[in-house]
C-alpha cells in the first residue's frame, strides 16, 4: 500500500512526530511504500539541524535522517511553513542574502504541489500531530 504522511507538530510538542516516525518505519519494513512525509505548520521544525535536545530523550532528528538514508523516504518540509519559522535551506538562504543552512541531512524543501501530488497517488493519507 502507498502512504502519504503529513506531520503538523514540532517534535517537542506532543507524541505525534514519534508516532509518525514509528508508523513510517514499520510500514516501510513491512513492504509498504511511503511516498512522502510532508512537514507542515510547526512540523517544519522536525528538520531543524540545530536542535540539541538531551541525549536521553533519544533525539528524533537523527532517526529521521537515518530513516531517509536507509529506507529512501522523501522528507519534505513545506517552503512557506519553513520560511515563516526562519528555517532556510542553504541555496534559498543565499538567494535572500542570509548565511543559514538549517536543514538536517535527509530533509529537503518543497512546495504544496508535491503534497497534493502525493495525496493523489497514495492509497492512504495520514496526518499526525494535530
Amino acid at each position: 500500500m502507498k502512504f502519504a504522511i503529513q506531520i503538523n507538530s514540532a517534535p517537542w510538542e506532543n507524541q505525534g512526530c514519534e508516532t509518525a516516525y514509528q508508523f513510517s518505519r514499520a510500514a516501510s519494513h513491512m513492504g509498504h511504500e511511503i511516498l512522502l512525509i510532508f512537514f507542515y505548520h510547526a512540523g517544519a521544525y522536525n528538520g531543524l539541524r540545530w536542535m540539541m535536545p538531551p541525549e536521553e530523550e533519544s533525539p528524533l532528528l537523527k532517526r529521521w535522517s537515518i530513516l531517509a538514508a536507509k529506507e529512501g523516504i522523501d522528507l519534505a518540509i513545506c517552503i512557506s511553513a519553513a520560511h515563516r519559522r526562519g528555517l532556510l535551506e542553504q541555496t534559498e538562504a543565499r538567494r535572500v542574502g542570509k548565511l543559514d543552512d538549517d536543514l538536517a541531512p535527509g530533509f529537503r524543501i518543497a512546495g504544496l504541489g508535491l503534497w497534493v501530488d502525493a495525496c493523489l497517488k497514495a492509497d492512504r493519507f495520514l496526518i499526525f500531530g494535530a
Binding site: 507542515y40 505548520h41 512557506s80 511553513a81 504544496l112 504541489g113 503534497w115 497534493v116 493523489l120
Partner: peptide, 12 residues
Amino acid sequence: ESLDMLMTVAAF
C-alpha cells in the same frame, strides 16, 4: 497555512 493548502488543492 491551512487555506494555502486548500487553495493549492483547488488549483490542482
